[in-house]
C-alpha cells in the first residue's frame, strides 16, 4: 500500500507540473472525442451498484449509465463508448493525463481534489455516507452504543480515518480491525470476528443483501461522513464540463418532468409542456451552447432512461439492483425531500 500511495503522490505531482504545458494548446475535448468516434469513460474496479461486469462481459451500473448518457448525448448511440477500468490509485492521473475523457466512478467530491489535482467535479449522481452494520440480536440500536466494540473496516481509505475520528469525538474507544478486501471483512464479521462493520451505507446495503440471512443484520441510523459521489473531467475545458454536467442534469430533469425511456417518443411528439418540448429539442435552441445536436437530451433518455429508472435498475430493486430504498434518502428528488435537483433547462 505504501508504495502505491507514494506513487500516487508522485504521479499527481508530475501531473500538476506537466498538465499546464501539455494541455495549453489543447484541441477541445469534444472535438477529440468526435474524431476518435468513441467516449473514453473511466470507472473503477467492479463495485456493486456503480459498475459491474455481468457474466456476458458487459458493464452495467449507475455510473456506467452516466457514461452511456454522455455517449448518447454526443453520438446519439450509447455503445460508442469505451469503459476503462482504472485502479483507485491511478484514477485522477489517468484523467489528468488525457487517457480518460470523463471520470464516472465512486469518487467523493472534496475540495482538495477539486482544486489541487487539475480536475473539476461536476454533478453529484449519488449521495452516500459512512455508517455501521450490526447484528440485530446484538441489541445495539445506535452507534453511540458501540463502546469498546470491535469494528471491521477496509484499510487505506477515508473510511478508516472517519471511524477513528468518530471514536475519538464520542470517546467510544472503538477497536478497528482492518482488512484489504471487503469480502474478507464481511466473512470475518459473519463469523463473529467483530461486532460491527463500517463502510459506505450504499455498499453495505448491497453486502447485507448477499449475507446468508440478510434479515439478521441492520444499518444503524448515524451517518459519519458526507460522501457526494460525482463525475469529474479535466480542468480547463468549459464546453466539455457543460456537456457532462447537463447530461447528468438531463437525467434528473427528465424524472422531474415525468419523461421515461418508454414514453419519450410520445412526450416529444404530443406533450403540451414547453419544458418538455424544450428539453427534448422539439422547440427552442437549448443545445446551441453545448455544440451538440438538438435531440441530445432525447437521445440520453431514449438510451438509458431517467435518473429514477437508472436508480431503480441498479441501486434499487430491479433484477440487477442491490436493493437500497430511495424514498426518504438523500437520493430522492427534491420534490420528495431528497437532494436530487437539476437547475431549470431553459
Amino acid at each position: 500500500m505504501k508504495i502505491t500511495s507514494i506513487l500516487t503522490s508522485l504521479t499527481a505531482a508530475a501531473v500538476m507540473t506537466t498538465t499546464g504545458v501539455t494541455f495549453a494548446s489543447a484541441e477541445s475535448t469534444l472535438d477529440i472525442v468526435k474524431k476518435r468516434g468513441n467516449l473514453r469513460c473511466q470507472v473503477g474496479q467492479p463495485s456493486p451498484g456503480y459498475y459491474n461486469l455481468d457474466s456476458e462481459g458487459n458493464w452495467y451500473g449507475l455510473d456506467v449509465s452516466v457514461c452511456q448518457a454522455v455517449a448518447a448525448a454526443i453520438f446519439g448511440d450509447k455503445t460508442k463508448l469505451e469503459i476503462q477500468s482504472v485502479s483507485s490509485q491511478a484514477r485522477f492521473t489517468a484523467l489528468a493525463n488525457g487517457e480518460s475523457d470523463l471520470l464516472s466512478r465512486t469518487a467523493t467530491w472534496t475540495m482538495t481534489r477539486d482544486t489541487q489535482l487539475g480536475i473539476d467535479f461536476l454533478a453529484t449522481n449519488f449521495y452516500d455516507g459512512q455508517g455501521f452494520t450490526v447484528r440485530k440480536d446484538s441489541g445495539i440500536t445506535s452507534a453511540m452504543e458501540l463502546k469498546g466494540a470491535k469494528v471491521c473496516v477496509t484499510t487505506g481509505t477515508t473510511t478508516e480515518l472517519n471511524l477513528t475520528d468518530f471514536s475519538r469525538q464520542n470517546d467510544l474507544g472503538i477497536q478497528a480491525v482492518t482488512f484489504e478486501d471487503y469480502n474478507v471483512r464481511d466473512d470475518t464479521y459473519l463469523n463473529g470476528g467483530c461486532d460491527a462493520v463500517t463502510g459506505d451505507k450504499s455498499s453495505m446495503a448491497g453486502n447485507i443483501s448477499s449475507f446468508p440471512v440478510p434479515g439478521d443484520h441492520m444499518i444503524l441510523p448515524e451517518t459519519l461522513s458526507k460522501e457526494p459521489l460525482a463525475s469529474a473531467v479535466r480542468h480547463g475545458d468549459s464546453q466539455w464540463s457543460d456537456i457532462v454536467r447537463w447530461s447528468i442534469f438531463a437525467l434528473i430533469n427528465a424524472e422531474e418532468l415525468g419523461i421515461t425511456q418508454a414514453n419519450v417518443d410520445d412526450m416529444k411528439a404530443n406533450s403540451k409542456d414547453p419544458n418538455v418540448l424544450r428539453m427534448l429539442g422539439a422547440e427552442g435552441n437549448l443545445s446551441d451552447g453545448l455544440g451538440l445536436e438538438s435531440d441530445w437530451a432525447y437521445n440520453i433518455i431514449k438510451a438509458v432512461g431517467n435518473y429514477g429508472e437508472i436508480y431503480e435498475a441498479y441501486m434499487g430493486h430491479g433484477p440487477q439492483g442491490i436493493g437500497i430504498d430511495r424514498a426518504g434518502s438523500l437520493n430522492a428528488l427534491w420534490t420528495d425531500g431528497g437532494l436530487m435537483y437539476s437547475p431549470p433547462m431553459r
Partner: peptide, 20 residues
C-alpha cells in the same frame, strides 16, 4: 485495471446475482 484471470475471478463477487 486489466481483466486477466485474477481480475475476472475477483469481479464475480461484485456481480449482483453473485454478490459476495
Amino acid at each position: 485495471g486489466l481483466f486477466d484471470i485474477l481480475g475476472m475471478l475477483r469481479s464475480i463477487s461484485k456481480d449482483v446475482p453473485w454478490l459476495g
